[in-house]
Design a protein around this nucleic acid. Structure first.
Lengths: 105, 105
DNA sequence: ATATTAGGTAGGGAGTTTCCTACCTGTCAA
DNA sequence: TTGACAGGTAGGAAACTCCCTACCTAATAT
C-alpha cells in the first residue's frame, strides 16, 4: 500500500537530532558545517546522522567544490502523511467527542 | 509549537511491530492475547511493545476482569500530522515539478 | 480450595545506536 | 606546491533496544 515508506524513514525520524536537521533544511540547502554549528556534537556525528537521512531519502546531497550541500527531500514525508490517513477517523471522533462535552457546558 | 509531540511518539513508531499493533487496533479494541497471535514473538515481548505505546499515549488500556483491552488513541498521530505541515510545501513543489515534466512529454 | 488463564515484571544476552577521536581524501588559496 | 579547510570513514565505548525464559499476581472455572 505504501511500498516506499519503509522502516528507514521511521527509524530516521526517531532521533531528535535528525528531526532538527530536517527543520533546519526547511530554510533551504545547507552545508555540513552550517548544520553542525547548531548542535552540541562533533561534526563526524552530524555526518553520520546525515547519512541516515540520506539512506532514508529524506535529504539529498549536491557536491559544490569541497562543500556538500544538503537539501530536504519531502517525498517520504508525503508517504508518512498517507500512512496516517487510516488513523484520521479516530482523532476526528475524539475531536467530535470533545466538542460535544464543551457544548454541554 | 507541538508541546505534546515528543520523542516517545517517534521512538514508538520506529518499530515495525508497534506500527503493526496500531494497524490491528484500527479494527477496534483487542486483548493482549488477540494481538500477540499476529506475531511470531512471545507474549511478554508484545506486552513490552504495548507498554512503549502506552507511554507514548498511542494506546490506552481498560481492565475487564482478567483481560486488558487495548484501544487506539490517535491524539499523538494528529500531532504528528501537524508536525508534517511545514514540510508539505516541499512535496507540493516536487509534485508540481513532476507534473510539468509530464506535460512536456 | 485448586487449577487454569490473562497478562505484567525481572533479568539477561545479542544486536544496534550514538557518540567519540583519529585519520583520510579532495579542493582551494598562498 | 604546500598548507588549510570541507567533510567522509574507521574503530571503539557506553547506552539502549528487542527478544528471550522464568516468574509473579489477579481473576475465573471446576
Amino acid at each position: 500500500m505504501n511500498p516506499d515508506l519503509n522502516d528507514d524513514v521511521f527509524a530516521a525520524l526517531a532521533s531528535p537530532v535528525r528531526r532538527a536537521l530536517l527543520t533546519l533544511l526547511l530554510d533551504g540547502p545547507r552545508t555540513v558545517n552550517e548544520l553542525a554549528a547548531h548542535f552540541d556534537m562533533r561534526r563526524p556525528s552530524v555526518s553520520e546522522h546525515l547519512k541516515v537521512l540520506r539512506d532514508a531519502e529524506l535529504v539529498s546531497e549536491r557536491r559544490v567544490g569541497r562543500e556538500r550541500h544538503y537539501s530536504l527531500e519531502a517525498g517520504p514525508l508525503m508517504e508518512l502523511q498517507e500512512w496516517l490517513h487510516p488513523y484520521e477517523r479516530f482523532w476526528r471522533e475524539r475531536m467530535a467527542g470533545l466538542r460535544d462535552v464543551l457544548e454541554d457546558m
